[in-house]
């Protein structure tokens, strides 16, 4: 697809470091400095214990399918139907669920036939074309986990 058609994310001041890490092919989470709870999307305060101090940590990059949809209708420019969006429940903490693209066959044409709720996935990174002069953008795409080993 052409770079001009694809809708790009608009990071905010909280999320910008998270998006920049994706460009380095790093998936980050925030960890509370007090209670160690993980969180995503990026937010300044721990919603468990109310602490402001936190650090970035790398996520394991593994999760399971919490749900998925197969898009048939053309909802907007930049996508070819059918395409799949997965909601991935991270192994790191089971209340973090992240949407992303699914890359089962590896050629970008997906009908979700190989998916199941609970299927183990691993993260992959998609460096997408952006208009010249724009900041680079990398998106999440998930594929079936090749190994269950930690």
């Amino acid at each position: 697809m052409s770079a001009s058609e694809r809708p790009l994310p608009v990071p905010d001041r909280d999320s910008l470091p998270w998006w920049k890490a994706l460009v380095r092919h790093e998936l980050l989470l925030q960890r509370c400095a007090s209670c160690d709870a993980l969180r995503w999307p990026p937010r300044e305060l721990c919603n468990r214990c109310g602490t402001l101090d936190w650090t970035w940590i790398p996520a394991s990059g593994r999760g399971t399918v919490a749900s998925w949809v197969v898009n048939h209708h053309m909802f907007g420019p930049g996508f070819r139907a059918p395409y799949v969006v997965v909601a991935v429940r991270l192994d790191d903490q089971d209340d973090i669920v992240m949407p992303g693209a699914y890359w089962g066959s590896g050629d970008g044409t997906e009908d979700g036939a190989d998916l199941a709720i609970g299927l183990p996935l691993e993260v992959d990174f998609d460096d997408i074309d952006v208009p010249s002069g724009s900041e680079p953008i990398t998106l999440l795409r998930w594929r079936p986990a090749r190994s269950m080993a930690p």
Binding site: P9, V10, P41, W68, V69, G76, P99
Partner: peptide, 28 residues
């Protein structure tokens, strides 16, 4: 809707898409 930055680039924006995600888990 600040969370749209995590949805828009995947073509995952409209109400039917979002409710389909939720409903699929419920149906399962």
């Amino acid at each position: 809707t600040v969370e749209f930055q995590y949805q828009v680039p995947y073509g995952f924006v409209t109400p039917p898409q979002q409710f389909a995600m939720y409903s699929h888990a419920y149906m399962h």
